[in-house]
Simulated assay, not measured.
Amino acid sequence: MSRVVVFDETGAPEVLRIVDEPVGDPGAGEVRIEIEAVGINRLDQMMRAGMPPRPIRLPHARLGIEATGTIDALGSGVEGWAIGDAVIVTAVPDMDSNGTYAERIVLPVDRIVARPDGLDVTSAAALWVAYSTAYGALVEKAAMRPGDHVLITAASSAVGLAAIQIANQIGAIPLAVTRSAAKKDALLAAGAAAVIVTDHDDVVEATHRYTNGAGADIVLDSVMGPGLAELANAAKPFSGTLVTVGWLDPRPAPYPASPITMIRYMSFEHTLDPTVVHRIAAFLTAGIRTGAVHPIIDTVFTLDDIVAAHHYLEQGHHTGKIVATI
């Protein structure tokens, strides 16, 4: 049996409950994983609250798209892995039926990568979604290069902090945007070259000031909403790129009139592609080895406290990742 978080209707965090469910043996090309910790993401909140990007299966829906643990059973035909290997889950496109908020899950073997040496369980649970999203958007899609100025909205989020570290690893110059001046010191400590506080700074003006009037080469936006058109003016005309990776503001987002490249990035574009997953894993492993990549953890809950974890997520005061241990 496996303890699993499920919900029968969408709504507040209290719709989440823990049940015992049988977990089967892995089939051909599959592995069973004993979960040690899971990362908690905005997508989880959106699905639970009834605002998913696609329809979900109710009742008895599950949550969770990332986790770390160890292999405890191998299906036929699985090579290169052994029972006891420490792994990270890279993609769960069917999270509403096989989400990672559970003690054990069965996945295709191409949905895992090895957990990098030296990465503790909590950090490993916080790694994949944030860093693969930032890497995919900045490196694979926007072709970030050394010396590029990269403007990062929602910079204190897990994706924002990952983007700061990845920009620094490449040799780019991360400019962090936050609503709260209280987060400025933490963002500078995380590696931001400068911090723009929207409570009293004009983002476009400040970006042009920090780039000597040129504008950002890349804007990485997790917010969208009505401010998207104005944010686009912070990018370099004609050669700048605006990549959106989230939708923290659910209101309609007008298409920018600025002459820039606009990209709507969805991480499953790459996390379901084994070739790109290999590149992401190699990049992150190198960053962990050199210290350039180090997941920032805000708070750790347990699976039994998953309702409290979702309440904390909704408050939006965290800096970095929220993790639940199993």
Rank of each mutant, 00 (worst) to 15 (best):
V5P: 05
T10A: 11
E14M: 05
V15D: 09
L16C: 07
I18Y: 04
P26F: 11
G29T: 08
R32C: 06
I33K: 08
E34W: 04
I35M: 14
E36A: 15
Q45A: 15
M47H: 13
R48L: 15
G50M: 11
M51P: 01
L58R: 09
L58K: 14
P59C: 07
L63H: 00
E66V: 07
I71Y: 04
I71L: 14
L74N: 13
L74R: 14
S76L: 12
E79F: 00
E79T: 15
I83H: 05
G84Y: 09
D85L: 07
I88C: 11
I88K: 07
G99Y: 13
T100K: 06
Y101S: 03
R104I: 08
V106K: 05
P108G: 14
D110Y: 10
V113K: 08
A114G: 08
V121H: 06
T122A: 07
S123D: 11
V129M: 15
T133D: 01
A134D: 04
L138R: 07
V139H: 06
G147W: 01
G147N: 10
D148P: 04
A158W: 00
A163C: 12
I166G: 06
A167E: 02
A176M: 06
A192D: 02
V197I: 06
V197Q: 08
H200C: 00
T207L: 12
R209T: 10
A214I: 14
D217S: 08
L231D: 07
N233G: 04
F238D: 10
V243T: 10
L248R: 09
P250C: 09
A253L: 13
Y255S: 09
S258Y: 06
E269P: 03
L272K: 13
D273F: 10
V276N: 07
L284N: 06
G287A: 05
T290I: 08
V293R: 08
V293P: 02
I296A: 01
D298I: 00
F301R: 05
I306V: 15
V307Y: 01
Y312C: 04
H317T: 13
I322Y: 00
I326Y: 05
